[in-house]
Design a binder for these strands. Structure first.
Lengths: 264, 264
DNA sequence: AGGCTGCCGTTTACACCGTAAATCGCCGGG
DNA sequence: CCCGGCGATTTACGGTGTAAACGGCAGCCT
C-alpha cells in the first residue's frame, strides 16, 4: 500500500539533515579550543567509524582531541559510560533527521517506514558503532525490547495507539518491529563491514590461496554468486513491507493473529 | 490469555538430548592433566556463561584450567581467535542436538522449525556468548549473511532446494531466516541477561529510587506491565510461523516477489 | 646407558590499557 | 595583590595480551 520514496537507493551516505547532535552548548562561533562532552562523544564516534571499536582507547581518543587521556574523565565517568554516550549520541541523530517524524501525522505506516529508514541510515553511516547499539545493555531494562531511547519508545507507542492500535497490539508491534530492525541491520552492517574493512590481512600474497577447503560444500560454492549478491536494500524494503502488512492485519482484527494466512 | 509465567517454553534449560559439548576428549577418568584445545574452548564457554565476556582473560582462563596464561597460546593463536573458537564451538552444539536434523527428511518446514529451536536453545543456554556469535565477523565473508558455519549453510540450502525451492528463493529464504533468527534471539537474550545478571548495581537500596525521570513518558509508564511481560517464546513461535508462511508463498509462486525488472 | 630432540608449560619482559591521585598553569574576583 | 578553583597534565599502579627465552620431562636412536 504505502508507496514510500521508491526508486533508486535510499539510505546510504547522507548525513542529510545533518543532526550533529543537539543542544546549543556554547556559542556557535567558538570552535576549537574548549573540551566538551559533546565534542568528546563526536570525536569518539568519528574515531570508531574510522578505526574500529577496539582501536578506541582513552589515550588515543585524547590524542585525537589534542589532549591527554585523563582530561576526558572530567566529562565522562569512564570508558564504559563513554560508549553508552556514543550509543545515545548516535541514536540522537534521529532527531535531526527531517525525514523522520515523532508523531504519525501521515499515518502509522508512514511513521514506521520513516523511522525504519532513519535507523537504517544511521546504521549504514556508522557500521562500526551499530553493533554497539545492538549489544549494549539498555538504560531502562524493564522495557522488554529496548530501543534504547525512551523518547522513541514513547513516540512509537503513542503513534500506534493514536492510529487505533490497542495497547496490547501496540506493544506487540513494538516488539516485532524492533526485533526486525535489529536483526536486519545488524546483519547488513556486519556484511558491509567485511566488504571493505580489514583488520588488514597481514599475509603476503593478497589474492589466491582461498581460505578454507570449500569442496565439502558444493551447494555453497555453486550458489556463491547469488550468496554474495548484495540486495540488502530491496530485502529490507520487502521485509519491512511484509511487517507492515502483518501489523495492518493485527490492527483490523484488533488482536494478534493466531496463524499466518496471508491472503492479502 | 497465557498465564503470567507460563511453563511451556520448550527451549529453556535443557540440554535435553544433551549436546553438552561433544566428544569424549581424553579418558573420562582423567580429570586434570592434559591441556587440549577443546578443553580450553569448553572452559572458556563455561567461564563466559558464569562471569560474563569481559571477565574472560587469558590469565584467568589459564588459572581456571590450573595453568599459566601462556600455556593457552600453544593451542590458540590469541585471544581473538579464542573467541572465534568459542563461537564455533557453541554452534557445533547443534550437531549434538538430536532434535535438529541436517536434512529435511520430514519436509522443509519441519527442518527450519527444528533448526530455529535448536539455535534458540543454544542462545538461551549461553546468553553471554550469543552476542558474540551475532557480532563476530564470519569465517567465510562472502556468504552474504553468515550463519557462521558453512556446513549449516550448505545443509540449509540443500534442504530447501531439495524441497522444491529455486536457487534464488533458497538464498532469499536463507537471508530472511537468518536475519529473523539473529534479531529475535539477540533481543531475547539481551533482555534475559538484564533480568538476572547485573554488572551488579552497586547502590545500596535495591528497590525504590527509580532511575530516570519517567514523567515525560506517560505511555511507557502506563504500559509498563505490558512492556515488561515476557512472552518471548510465544512471539518467537508466531514470528517463525509467519516466516514459514511467507516462504511457502514464495515456494508456490516459484519466485521471490519482486515487482519490476532489475534492469541493471 | 647416554644423549638428543620435541613437546608443553613456565618465567620473564614489554608495551599498552583504564583510571586514582597528586600536581600544575592560569584566570577572574576579592 | 593574593587566591581559590577549574581544566588539563603528570605520575603511578595494577592488569592485559603476547613475544621470547627458558625449563623439564618423555621417548627415541645409536
Amino acid at each position: 500500500m504505502t508507496e514510500p520514496d521508491e526508486g533508486a537507493d535510499p539510505d546510504s551516505p547522507e548525513g542529510r539533515g545533518g543532526a550533529a547532535s543537539v543542544m546549543p552548548a556554547a556559542a556557535p562561533g567558538s570552535g576549537r579550543a574548549g573540551l566538551d562532552r559533546r565534542r568528546i562523544l563526536g570525536a569518539a564516534i568519528e574515531f570508531i567509524d574510522r578505526d574500529g571499536l577496539n582501536a578506541l582507547t582513552m589515550r588515543r581518543l585524547g590524542a585525537h582531541l589534542g589532549v591527554e587521556a585523563m582530561a576526558l574523565y572530567r566529562y565522562v565517568p569512564g570508558r564504559e559510560q563513554l560508549l553508552d554516550g556514543v550509543v545515545e549520541s548516535v541514536i540522537d541523530e534521529l532527531y535531526g533527521d527531517p525525514d523522520v517524524h515523532l508523531s504519525a501525522s501521515h499515518g502509522w505506516q508512514d511513521y514506521l517506514q520513516r523511522l525504519a529508514h532513519g535507523v537504517r541510515r544511521i546504521a549504514l553511516a556508522h557500521p562500526e558503532v551499530f553493533p554497539l547499539v545492538a549489544t549494549r545493555p539498555p538504560a531502562a531494562p524493564w522495557v522488554r525490547p529496548p530501543l534504547r531511547s525512551l523518547r522513541w519508545v514513547e513516540s512509537f507507542l503513542d503513534a500506534l495507539i493514536d492510529s487505533g492500535f490497542s495497547e496490547e497490539s501496540a506493544v506487540a508491534a513494538y516488539r516485532a518491529y524492533s526485533s526486525f530492525l535489529l536483526g536486519h541491520l545488524l546483519l547488513e552492517v556486519s556484511q558491509k563491514g567485511v566488504k571493505i574493512s580489514p583488520d588488514d590481512q597481514p599475509e603476503g600474497v593478497p589474492a589466491a590461496a582461498e581460505s578454507t577447503d570449500l569442496s565439502a560444500y558444493p551447494t555453497v560454492v555453486r550458489l556463491e554468486p547469488l550468496l554474495s549478491l548484495d540486495e540488502s536494500a530491496a530485502e529490507f524494503e520487502e521485509a519491512l513491507e511484509n511487517l507492515l502488512g502483518r501489523l495492518e492485519i493485527v490492527l483490523r482484527e484488533g488482536r494478534t493473529p493466531r496463524r499466518a494466512d496471508p491472503r492479502t
